[in-house]
Nucleic acid binder design. Structure first.
Lengths: 233, 233
DNA sequence: AAAAAAATATGTTATAGAGCACAAAGGTAG
DNA sequence: CTACCTTTGTGCTCTATAACATATTTTTTT
């Protein structure tokens, strides 16, 4: 917890979407309950089945939201980038977590107790609209994903994951290297395939000069062709 | 449009979740914009790609929300029962529909222009909480479904669909017949499999005395065993 | 009532991708 | 430096399920 070290200004900048709609009194309430936690690489943030207590906002780092499926196979449901909010859905739905969250890399995460959020929501309609918008976007993505993961073939699914990672986390300064370094296993869990097939298909893509791989670094070479593969499935 | 025929009392009973949080003035606004449409069996309610204009509430009938995937294969994403709201997600996300909706059977649907809903939402925080709750529940279901459809085997997926239909639409007076009669094709599209495999697996279930089939009527005989099959995948 | 179309049923074949085994390389710990 | 563990890479086999073909039955249209 490093709350004491942050000025109001810094808090406002860390969580602008949440902060901006609030009245001065509401901001005061938020400051009281605002805490910060650090997580190590690969550390679990919350588990399936646990009771949600806090809204979380990722201040820095990268997070995966995943679900353990049949026979220990895990499926990455979505990924979080900095300034994004998560861990609140289950509370709003009055249930426990149906997913788990873990840090891809070292993370700084801000926690705000859900009861505080509820209190603010009851007073502030604009804040409600922020969550409505966010949940609506996520639900649309989830619906798209359901169809893509079930109907596309392996190459289409992997191509889609690569584009998805590019859109979410962006590229490095060279303008072509994905700025997230995933293990082949995580890539497989994101694309609904076995690790072997992720490795195989990835090196096929490299042979076909669609990408270049150097360990976990992936350079996007022919984005148009990758888009095409993703589209036709 | 049969708006004129409905009393305020009847409107209030048709859309209680939306109605109840409102102030008298807000209720007046809603009455002005409230219209009703009838749809025939199998009629399309909205299409993928269209721009959302209205919140819809299903007053009577049954609706499927689906998505056309690769190679014309369609996937049923969720189903709507009476008193449920739909068609609003895309508007909140500032996009067009990514799914389509069609009537399983004759439907009566109430339409309310989304701009009216937005206006009410900006004034009424409690109404916002209703949508937050609903979207949160749907997103949880969608996440679960992603994993189930991708990881479970055919029998597990079909078993799950049967239980899902039972939970959503309930049973007839005999206490065992599903009160929705789906074509084998719809059942397949709900369970992510080909029509042939839905037919085959369904008749296997009948042979194993888990269910009894009479045309499109499905009787649940051994629910415990069906649950087990759904669970182990 | 006859004809056409759609839905259901069942058998056969083909294949995408899982599952497994093993080897090599890279990282980490003692 | 050596030993051990994890990750990556590659080949082989097997199976679940799609794809296809063809009846048969039911529904819709004329």
């Amino acid at each position: 917890m490093v709350k004491k070290e942050m000025t109001e200004q810094e808090i406002a900048e860390s969580i602008p979407d949440l902060w901006q709609p609030l009245t001065p009194e509401q901001k005061e309430i938020l400051i009281q309950d605002f805490t910060i936690q650090k997580y190590k690489k690969n550390e679990t943030i919350y588990c399936e089945g646990e009771t949600p207590m806090h809204l979380m906002c990722l201040l820095s780092g990268k997070v995966k939201i995943f679900k353990e499926g049949v026979g220990g196979r895990s499926q990455i449901i979505r990924v979080i980038k900095d300034k994004e909010y998560f861990a609140y859905r289950a509370y709003f739905a009055n249930g426990n977590f149906v997913t788990a969250a873990a840090a891809f890399e070292p993370c700084t995460i801000c926690h705000i107790p859900m009861p505080t959020i509820m209190k603010l929501l009851k007073e502030n309609a604009e804040l409600g609209l922020f969550f409505i918008r966010q949940l609506s976007i996520d639900l649309g993505i989830s619906d798209e994903r359901t169809v893509n993961l079930t109907q596309k073939h392996i190459r289409g699914r992997l191509a889609e994951s690569l584009l998805f990672l590019k859109d979410t986390y962006g590229l490095e300064e060279d303008g072509s290297t994905l700025s997230i370094y995933l293990s082949r296993e995580d890539l497989a869990n994101l694309s609904n395939m076995t690790t072997s097939n992720a490795i195989r298909t990835l090196s096929n893509f490299a042979t076909e000069k669609l990408i270049a791989i150097d360990g976990r670094k992936i350079k996007i070479i022919d984005e148009e062709k990758i888009k095409k593969i993703s589209k036709i499935g």
